[in-house]
Simulated scan of single mutants.
Amino acid sequence: MTFVACSDDDGIKIPKPLPKEQWSATLKGDGEELGAYPDLYCNYWEYTYRADENSDKILCLKGEFPHCRYFSVSLYNDETGDVFSGINDQEIPADKGSTNPFVKTTSGKNYFTIYVVPNGTPQSVIDKLGSERVVKVAKGVNKVAIALRHYLGTTADGSQKDEYAGVELPAITALDMDLHETSVPEHVASNIAKVTSKVYTQKSDENKEMPFFLAPVSMYYPNSFTAYLYGRTHLRKDSVLTFSFIPAPVPTKPEEYKDAVTRYWSICIGSASDTRSYMSIY
């Protein structure tokens, strides 16, 4: 309960929650909290709301570009776990007076704005927001989970690992179709926390000569901008498993990101019985 003091002629102003209060607690890759083999060097946050009950509201995510190797915003149908939209760091236009640090080397604080618009939003409204800043809710999705990901988050000076990549999480506000501020949809419980082990036959079980397979897009809240290779094996107590590969080269500065073969890669080892990762190398 919150009490706000005001005079008789003042309008009542409802205090806005801090960004960290709007998003979920950090879903840590190394916290043994997430199933589906999370990367131990990635942190996740979710904001889930009923799209069917807020079909006239536009969400606005405004924040500072984080200090990390890579970050993205993905939208999921929370009833199925399927990804249907998203935007990654390089695609996000910087706000006026800022520079996208994932496109050009820069210093200082740099800000961005992303809009999540409901299905059926008029193009005239999208044009006013700036279409390059807009991600759309897909038709038929009743419950939307917005996931924010940071890979290798550090402090602003890059000197040490940081849970929030040296910045505040993006603030969430809402607009009506006339672009006037309105109440933010309630943050409801997400099924992301319920992603647990699901044991089923995979191609690697049937094709013994092929150690790794390109994983299909799953229903377990995948990062739509990432490709996954998987392989399963039984490691006996009296044996050692080895494999070799040519590592993909990674860029050394933002100007090289656009044409890079990959920005980040890692090897994650986990248990098929509970789909938790217990070791990652990046």
Rank of each mutant, 00 (worst) to 15 (best):
I146T: 14
I146Y: 01
A147M: 13
L148D: 02
R149H: 06
R149V: 12
G153M: 11
G153I: 04
G153P: 04
T154C: 12
T155A: 14
A156P: 01
D157H: 01
S159Y: 01
S159A: 13
S159N: 06
S159P: 03
Q160K: 12
Q160Y: 05
Q160R: 08
Q160F: 04
K161I: 13
E163Q: 13
E163F: 02
Y164K: 12
Y164P: 00
Y164C: 07
A165N: 08
A165H: 06
G166I: 09
V167W: 09
V167R: 15
V167G: 08
V167H: 09
E168F: 14
L169F: 06
L169P: 02
L169T: 00
P170A: 10
P170H: 13
A171P: 02
I172Y: 05
A174M: 04
A174W: 01
D176E: 15
M177S: 03
M177A: 05
L179C: 13
H180P: 00
E181F: 08
E181T: 04
T182P: 05
S183D: 12
P185W: 08
P185E: 08
P185L: 06
H187N: 14
A189C: 07
S190Q: 07
S190D: 03
I192E: 01
I192Q: 06
A193V: 07
A193I: 05
K194N: 15
V195Q: 13
T196E: 02
T196M: 01
Q202L: 09
Q202N: 07
K203W: 03
S204F: 04
S204Y: 03
S204Q: 05
D205G: 06
